[in-house]
Computed example of a mutant assay.
Amino acid sequence: MIRLLFTNRTLASSLLLAITFTLQTSIAMAAPSQTEETSATREIPDCTFTLVDHVTLAAERAGVIREIRVAEGDRIGNDELVARLASEEASAHLRLARLAAESDIAIRLAEKTQSVAFTELQQAEELNKRRQIYTEFELRRLRLTLDKTILEAQQAEHDRELRTLEEAVAAATLRSFEIRSTFAGTVVQVFRRPGEAVQQGEPIARIVNTGRLKVEGFAPVQQISDFHPGQKVSVVSTDVSPAVVLHGQLRFVDVSVQSVTQEVRIWAEVDNSAGLARPGLSATLRIHLDTPAAVHVSEMQASPETRSRK
């Protein structure tokens, strides 16, 4: 009985030792992978979301605002009319230029005149083959008349091209009275009202697009050698609930260092098409070093030329 009890205790101790050894081995094998994952990512705290696409639309010329077609909060498309200056005179000039460009009367008249001159010369030469009716001087005059009609037809074509260009200039002048959006976005400010006079360059409205955002921060100079434009990034913001996680690419690493803080300005561009983040929110930027841009740099550093120089 005592021997059986001793044997059971020995088996239990052996089993406990085997389980402990297995757990320690698993932990030891998992530890390198955790370290490797951490070493492949760098976190930059205290970053800020800012806009990539934002513009303040201005008047291209001086004038009086005839209409404002947007209000704050409106969604507008690319090249959509935002405002228009008074342009009645420019519209009239465009109509005149268009009528002139569409007219082909001078061309048709020149072609008919050329046809008559050619026929007259041809008949004169045929008659002279039978009997000398036209003198050489008269034939030269007929040839000169034909050449003149040919040049007049060419001049009529040239004049029509000039009128077409004048129409294009008039159309461009009329467009300069319009203020149009340069990309799709949201109107966040309207600075003017219909009836107000504006000078060239004065603001009319401000448009932003939050579909893509810039995440800007400062990284310690010791880590800059690991950062390269094109690396994938993840951005986490806990300023809102639930937390926002966005993805994108590192776009910029400054070439200069802040002398006081010994930090370098960097920023990444992230996709915010779902509208989860807003400009002004703070975030943590996580840069994934094991992305193609980092691999490319590592291969360059490990090239035979580099090793030979070492």
Rank of each mutant, 00 (worst) to 15 (best):
F6I: 14
A12T: 10
A12M: 13
A12C: 08
S14H: 10
T20N: 13
T22C: 13
T22M: 09
A28Y: 14
A31F: 10
P32H: 04
S33T: 12
T41G: 07
P45F: 09
T48H: 06
T48R: 10
L51R: 01
R61A: 08
G63S: 01
V64S: 00
A71K: 07
I76S: 05
D79P: 06
H93V: 14
L96I: 11
A97N: 06
A100C: 12
E102D: 14
I105C: 08
R108V: 15
A110R: 08
V116M: 06
T119E: 11
T119G: 12
R131W: 12
Y134K: 03
E136K: 13
R140D: 04
R143T: 05
L146M: 06
L146E: 07
E152T: 12
V169K: 11
A172D: 13
T173P: 03
L174D: 05
R180P: 01
G185D: 00
T186K: 04
V190R: 06
F191N: 09
P194S: 04
E196G: 02
V198Q: 01
G201R: 11
E202F: 02
P203R: 07
V208S: 10
T210Y: 05
L213N: 01
K214S: 14
V215F: 01
V215D: 00
Q231H: 02
T238L: 10
S241A: 12
S241L: 04
V244R: 00
L246K: 02
H247G: 12
L250H: 03
R251K: 12
V253K: 02
V253C: 04
S256D: 01
S259V: 02
V260L: 08
Q262A: 13
Q262K: 13
A268I: 01
E269R: 00
V270P: 00
A274Q: 12
G275E: 01
P279K: 08
P279F: 04
L281R: 04
T284H: 14
T284P: 09
T284C: 12
L285D: 01
I287W: 02
D290F: 09
P292C: 11
A294F: 07
V297T: 07
S298Q: 10
